[in-house]
Amino acid sequence: MFQNLLIIHSIMRWVVIVALLLGIGSVFINKSQKNIYTSKHYFWFNVIKHLLNIQFVIGLIILTKSPMVQAFWSQINQAVKWREIRFFGLEHPFMMILSILVFNFIIHKSKKFINSTKGFNYLFWGYLVVFILVFISIPWSFSPFTTRPLFRFF
């Protein structure tokens, strides 16, 4: 089960990255054109939020099953000195939890901007912050923190 969830989580990261980029692009275009933020926009940004929440739940399940996370918490004094174990046991979960909390808050709060032009400006900066937090917290193959393959099929 753990391996299957890890594969799904790895594939879903691409869905999340693409969804966030589409969200940023949509927000930027609408902001540039000074469009009014409507309930239809809110609906689609909520869809993106739900994609992130699904990825988050999968990540939480992996967090409870991961041997690396269990090793981190069983020997925390030693584990904080090991870059890879610390990343997966502490840094990655913390940053992703922070990202999902911020994103849910931003989308929820954007509801008050429906029928105004301020919604897209608010969402643009929120999306940008969340995208940066998520992007630097993913274990990319080029990451200085720890590396994982870009596609995991094992």
Rank of each mutant, 00 (worst) to 15 (best):
M1D: 08
M1G: 07
M1I: 06
F2V: 00
F2Y: 12
Q3D: 10
N4I: 13
L5I: 11
L5V: 12
I7V: 15
H9M: 07
H9Y: 00
H9P: 00
I11Q: 13
R13W: 04
V15S: 09
V16S: 03
V16G: 04
I17L: 14
L21Q: 07
L22F: 13
G23K: 05
G23E: 02
G25F: 07
G25E: 11
S26Q: 10
F28M: 14
I29N: 11
S32Q: 14
S32H: 12
K34M: 06
K34D: 02
K34W: 01
I36S: 10
I36W: 06
I36Q: 08
T38H: 08
S39L: 14
K40F: 08
K40E: 08
F43N: 09
W44E: 03
W44C: 05
F45I: 04
N46F: 03
K49G: 02
H50Y: 10
H50V: 11
H50W: 12
L51C: 02
L52T: 00
L52F: 01
I54M: 08
I54V: 15
F56C: 04
F56H: 05
V57H: 06
G59N: 08
I61Y: 07
I61P: 01
L63Y: 14
L63H: 08
K65V: 06
S66P: 07
P67T: 10
P67I: 12
P67Q: 11
M68L: 12
V69Y: 00
Q70I: 15
A71C: 05
A71P: 00
Q75K: 14
I76E: 09
I76L: 09
N77W: 07
W82C: 05
W82P: 04
W82D: 10
E84H: 10
E84Y: 08
I85G: 03
G89M: 07
E91D: 15
H92R: 11
H92D: 10
P93S: 08
F94G: 07
M95R: 09
M95G: 00
I97K: 06
I97E: 07
L98I: 15
S99I: 01
L101Y: 11
F103Q: 00
F103R: 00
N104T: 15
I106V: 14
I106W: 02
I106K: 01
I107K: 01
H108D: 04
K109M: 13
S110T: 08
K111C: 00
K111P: 01
K112H: 13
K112A: 13
K112Y: 11
F113T: 05
F113I: 06
F113Y: 15
N115W: 13
S116M: 02
S116K: 13
G119T: 09
N121Q: 14
F124I: 11
W125P: 05
G126C: 07
Y127W: 07
L128W: 07
V129H: 02
V130I: 06
L133P: 05
V134M: 05
F135P: 02
S137M: 06
I138N: 02
W140A: 05
S141T: 10
S141F: 08
F142D: 11
S143V: 04
P144L: 09
P144N: 11
T146A: 12
R148E: 12
P149V: 06
P149C: 03
F151M: 15
R152L: 12
F154H: 12
F154K: 14
